[in-house]
Design a protein around this nucleic acid. Structure first.
Length: 399
RNA sequence: GGUGAGGUAGUCAAGUGGCCAACGACGGCGGACUGUAAAUCCGCUCCCUACGGGUUCAUAGGUUCGACUCCUAUCCUCACCA
């Protein structure tokens, strides 16, 4: 039983530090029903969760299955200070209201995966506000600059001459201090968080918390491009609240190689099942497209319903496999004659008339399924189906 | 605070008085081929009802017939020194 739990917990992890501790915690749970705490931090700067986050959430859900209470830590303190990556110095500092709003949408999304009953939402401003400048300095004295520069992210930026704000040095410390305050037994995070996660262990030791937290790291999920990590700002993400059609389509657009990563990190199929599927594809008995469709179906159904997922699949087949027109197309209307390029911009399927002209010239624009070749075309009264490329559609009614 | 280097399109990066709306690479978009995959090939890539016009090379001024290129001030980044 413990073996099984361990196996499931280890699935897909990139690295585990202090495996023994985890085994002991599980043993205590199975033998004496003792619960333990697993901490995970979330940054409430953006209100939307994507599949990259759910890798972590799914792992937390697994822990909940085996006796854990989740400390769902909201970085409310850090969010009011500014952007921790320093990449974008101009990013707005969030107001309390923004944060509250973000957190609300955040948690409702998270509870699609997590068990609410076994989750404690905690806010780090509650104890970090109280720390004060003296406490902050004392905290900072736990670490040297040289040690701080060991962090991959910092050393890279330092050598590449990208600015690092002094305040950024505080983030790992603050995150570590959260673990001190919460006396977390385990903390999980992405591999990019390794330094910060370890800081928790070090600080727990310095502040004499009885036991250091075990650390479990999940790999970073690649985005749709298969290269960079999934993130909203890169636009290569699948959002938890994406429409079923989008979600299904996005999953299907990933490359075959990437598909296996998604299987491992996102699917609930067992590892054995997955390797069976993989073999099937390799020896040609399974078509990769079919396999990918199944994955897309599973993921879409998790966040919507099986029915909606199946509808999405049907819609997808209709539009792409048979290149028919989608069911729901946004409708626009205008008065009087309108120039085709302008119409495309007004319908939000082209960013500028210049771009529209280029696409027309290249044969990428269709009206009612017919290629448009005249870039000076004026649309007279009537209803039109406009299309740019393969996937952008709009209906326009000219009065 | 001092000295030096630097800030060019989504990103990286050429360009050092007219040939510059600005080489190239990546990304992105359109097309072909496909499984809306990958790979490959072709084209496009500031805006504007456009063989023309407008606005760009950190910001604000100046010199010049003419500036991304020269001058001045300001802001920002990096390195070394303090």
């Amino acid at each position: 039983m413990i073996e099984e739990a361990l196996l499931e917990i280890k699935r897909g992890t990139a690295e585990i530090i202090d495996n023994e501790r985890i085994e002991k915690l599980l043993k205590a749970y199975f033998e004496d029903g003792k619960t333990y705490t697993v901490k995970a931090g979330f940054d409430p700067t953006a209100p939307d969760l994507h599949l990259g986050h759910t890798v972590l959430l799914q792992k937390l859900a697994t822990f909940q299955k085996y006796g854990a209470r989740i400390q769902f830590l909201i970085g409310s303190f850090t969010a009011t200070i500014g952007d921790p990556t320093g990449k974008n110095a101009t990013r707005k500092v969030l107001t309390q209201e923004d944060i509250v709003k973000n957190i609300e949408s955040y948690t409702t999304q998270a509870f699609k995966i997590l068990d609410k009953e076994k989750t404690d939402i905690v806010y780090n401003h509650e104890w970090l506000d109280a720390l004060g400048s003296a406490g902050m300095l004392q905290l900072a004295s736990n670490l040297t600059v040289a040690r701080m520069l060991e962090r991959d992210d910092f050393s890279k930026r330092y050598t590449s001459q990208t600015p690092i704000a002094v305040s950024e040095f505080m983030y790992p410390l603050l995150q570590g201090y959260d673990s001190v305050h919460l006396k977390s037994d385990i903390e999980i995070g992405g591999t990019d968080q390794k330094f910060n996660l370890l800081m928790g262990r070090q600080l727990q030791k310095s502040y004499e918390v009885k036991k250091q937290q075990a650390v479990l790291m999940m790999p970073i999920l690649e985005g749709l491009d298969g290269i960079q990590k999934m993130s909203k700002s890169l636009g290569n993400y699948i959002g938890v609240s994406d429409e079923p059609n989008d979600m299904f389509g996005k999953v299907l657009s990933i490359s075959d190689a990437l598909m296996w990563r998604y299987f491992e990190l996102l699917s609930t199929k067992s590892l054995d099942e997955i390797s069976d599927i993989k073999n099937g594809v390799q020896n040609g008995s399974l078509h990769p497209k079919k396999v990918k469709e199944e994955l897309a179906l599973e993921i879409t159904a998790r966040f919507h319903s099986l029915e909606e997922a199946q509808n999405a699949k049907a819609e997808f087949d209709k539009v792409h496999a048979k290149s028919q027109i989608p069911t729901d197309i946004e409708e626009f209307s205008c008065d009087g004659e309108i120039w085709i390029a302008k119409a495309l911009v007004d319908c939000n399927i082209e960013p500028s008339t210049s771009q529209a002209r280029r696409d027309i010239k290249q044969g990428g624009v269709k009206i009612n399924q017919e290629k448009v070749s005249d870039e000076k075309l004026e649309l007279t009264t009537g209803e039109y189906l406009l299309q740019v490329g393969k996937r952008k559609f709009a209906k326009l009614k000219v009065n």
